[in-house]
Amino acid sequence: MNTMNHKSDKKLPELLSTAPSYLWLFVFFLLPSLLVFAIAFKSADSSGGISDSWTLSTISNVLRQDYIIVLWRTIWVSVVVTALCLLLSIPVAYWIAQQPKKYRYWYLLLIIIPLWTNFLIRIFAWRTLLHPEGFLRTALLWLGVIPDDMFLLNNMGAVITVTVYTCLPFAILPIFAAAEKFNFALLEAARDLGASRFKAFYAIFLPGIKRGILTAILVVFIPAMGSYAIPDLVGGVDGELLGNKIALRASANRNLPEAAALAAMLSIIITVPVLAFMLKHKRLLRNIISIRRSAGDSTK
């Protein structure tokens, strides 16, 4: 395989390795997504079908004030969930990465196993845990931590707790992957040079696992923005998030165009900043890679 050295032949392997995913995602992802954006410019007819004519009314309808309230609620819940997940997963990943290699994967497995139970069932189990007459609330009442009329279920606190619970493994995995590659000798060196433990962690470890943290943020924040089963099952009367609205419009309310418009709004809110950030970040990555490669070439 000398092709790598010749520019003219370089195209073929590139095309070969690119085509399957490119074509697949073009047909099964891009095309259908565009279809949805198109449907946002339609309206629903009374039988629940989609009208033939084009209109802007569905879009303008979606910008109503009550949707904005729900949107805002969705954003802050997702931000809190993401922050909590990071707070919990960084120390865990840090700890696991320092364990002897033969135990590491067992710890990882322990983190993953809860994911192998059905997620709806896990949510249901939380309802038992947070039950108003359950042991947790009784204990908290006895300790005087919570007032008599406070419940642990059917409120935003429950939604956040359970969302953190379901997202945590997905946050730990990428951070662990990054931490595993981190050279822990650097921390020792910093300590030898007089940095405090905290300072070394903050100034060396965290930047060292930056990519893992970024991945974790993405894999937690995005599903949180779109979640609807959790607010549905453990949320209260004012617990509706954007995902609930979309699902409701798509099913019970028989208004597919409005569901499409809401979904489009959600995906624009998520996709645009994330893609912009990633493209910028990618240039950064590319720089690093090309620096490393040229360094390798020069030593050769």
Partner: peptide
């Protein structure tokens, strides 16, 4: 507590 179609059966039984 909520508007609900899913968990009320388990909820009423468990108290």
């Amino acid at each position: 507590a909520k508007f609900d179609n899913e968990v009320y059966k388990a909820g009423i039984q468990s108290g």
